[in-house]
Nucleic acid binder design. Structure first.
Length: 477
RNA sequence: GGUCCCGUAGCUCAACUGGAUAGAGCAACAGCCUUCUAAGCUGUAGGUUCCAGGUUCGAGUCCUGGCGGGAUCACCA
């Protein structure tokens, strides 16, 4: 089982989520190619104080307008009200501090935050009107996310909601407490003692009995191992949560779950901007939808300029532009070793030349064009395998032969980058071969047949390799 | 401060987990389109692999100590 994406429902998806989604989806395909049965899951964080903030703000200032009324995506609308809440909340804090409160007091006493807390309490008590609002706004967000997932080509086999799993966590914590595996403090809060593992104590239930983040993750893990017969669980989550997952696994071991050692945190680095880390509060976030849209526009500009798609009908052109744009974006993010932080420069956007997705897609389009021209798309001619090979032909064959090993390695390390870089090498060798030797125009028929077969085979590997990265390849571009 | 991750060409990244002369792309410069797609191909230039020790026949890779960058150490998620 592999979990990725795991969004909060109070803000739209951004560049960081893109890396997460692409990584998770690609690793899932690679593991499948390595012979594993893979279940792709998403865990939606749909409850908590942050969602209540958006709800409060929308109630106050939303004028009952739906995403449809305003013509915006639902996740954007909810995100806007989250920001609105934060702004007004800050204003209230400033006001209260002017009246003499300390910052901490003001943060606690601001009317807005009290309203949000009140809403959370009502939610936990199943208050009908709050639940209705919560369901309505969450649905807006899901509709918005679905659009983004669809353009990115990301899919899941199952979606978990924290609102449905958080109680499980509480009950297993109480069980373990009864067995004496956890400790209860005077104020009734429940803790795991990890001091033997050189870590601190970790809270699992607040003094009022409510659960924290860790509690929910304990619950969902147990639930999944009960529901499915899984031998490994992969969490695709940023490296800022390294500590969290270390602790998660330790606590589960402490609770006596045999499978606790089968949890694997696929920890990936942050996506940084030239200005540093993305901060939603400072408005330096690169929005996922906006980014894809810009990329598609760039791809359209490039293809219009080259004139290579002229003559095709409009929808076909749009399909290819989108394919190329996403190819550029996905390849850009996946060729880098997951554990490393990476830099994204919006000003320079993403290249279409060199070690890029479009270069590989282009080579595929070229190969398909060759086969079309030769009229052998469906039936390849037989070839003589005793022919003496030219140097580039031999090199090409050798590179193709590495494929199984490369996939195996990518699976072992859960690193799509190995495949990306391999494809680049392969494509480079093919282009050299293509440049040095005629294929369709080769007069010697036995050589021509051999080269057609080599080209066809290279095309197949490119297509398959790119598929493992979640990237489509065009027939022409 | 404790813990974890990272540091390779001006920039973005590789280097099969310890092997031979550290490789690509971008940017720069010089070439190649009346012949299968120039989103391509060829060449030039660019390196004390952060520093200092150590282990080894052999270190970008392993160990120790520094320096620099990032993350994390909540009754937030």
């Amino acid at each position: 089982m592999i979990e990725y994406s795991s969004p909060n429902t109070n803000k739209p998806l951004h560049l960081g989520h893109i890396r997460n989604n692409l990584l998770g989806f690609s690793v899932a395909r690679i593991l499948e190619a390595c012979g594993h049965e893979v279940i792709k899951v998403n865990l939606v964080n749909d409850r908590g104080i942050h969602i209540c903030k958006s709800m409060v703000a929308w109630q106050k200032w939303g004028e009952n307008k739906t995403p449809e009324d305003l013509g915006v995506k639902g996740d954007k609308l909810v995100g806007d009200f989250y920001v609105k809440f934060d702004q007004q909340y800050k204003a209230q804090i400033a006001e209260l501090m002017k009246e003499g409160m300390t910052e901490e007091e003001a943060k606690n006493k601001a009317p807005l935050i009290e309203e949000a807390r009140e809403m959370l309490r009502k939610w936990e008590n199943r208050d009908a009107s709050v639940l209705e609002l919560w369901e309505k706004m969450n649905q807006w967000v899901y509709d918005g996310f679905d659009v983004t997932y669809k353009t990115l080509g990301i899919e899941f086999d199952k979606i978990y909601y924290e609102s449905e799993t958080y109680k499980k966590g509480k009950s297993i914590v109480l069980d373990s407490l009864e067995k004496g595996l956890l400790i209860k403090k005077e104020d009734n809060s429940v803790w795991a003692d990890l001091t033997n593992d050189k870590l601190d104590e970790k809270i699992l239930l607040r003094s009022d009995g409510t659960s924290v983040y860790m509690t929910q993750d304990l619950g969902t893990a147990v639930q999944r191992f009960e529901e499915y017969d899984i031998d490994q669980h992969v969490y695709v989550v940023g490296n800022e949560q390294d500590y969290h997952f270390k602790v998660l696994s330790l606590i589960l071991q402490k609770m006596g779950y045999q499978w606790a050692s089968q949890l694997f945190h696929l920890s990936y680095g942050m996506v940084e901007l030239p200005s540093g880390k993305m901060k939603s509060r400072e408005g330096t976030v690169v929005d996922a939808d906006d980014l894809v849209e810009t990329m598609i526009q760039t791809a359209a500009d490039v293809s219009t300029e080259s004139g290579k798609l002229s003559g095709l009908d409009k929808t076909e052109i749009e399909t290819i532009n989108k394919m190329v744009a996403l190819g550029a974006l996905k390849y850009f993010m996946l060729k880098v070793d997951p554990k490393k932080n990476m830099l994204f420069n919006p000003a320079e956007s993403i290249d279409f030349n060199g070690n890029t997705g479009p270069f590989i897609q282009y080579t595929h389009a070229r190969i398909r064009s060759l086969l079309r021209k030769a009229g052998v798309e469906n039936s390849l001619p037989a070839f003589d395998d005793t022919l003496e090979l030219a140097q580039k032909e031999l090199e090409l064959i050798k590179t193709m032969a590495q494929l199984p090993e490369v996939i195996d390695e990518a699976g072992k390390n859960m690193n799509p980058g190995s495949i990306a870089n391999y494809l680049y090498d392969l494509v480079k060798v093919f282009n050299q071969f293509y440049h040095e030797h005629s294929v369709v125009n080769e007069p010697d028929e036995s050589k021509r047949n051999l080269r057609l077969n080599l080209s066809h085979q290279t095309g197949k590997i490119i297509k398959h390799g790119m598929w493992l990265l979640g990237i489509d390849v065009p027939e022409r571009m």
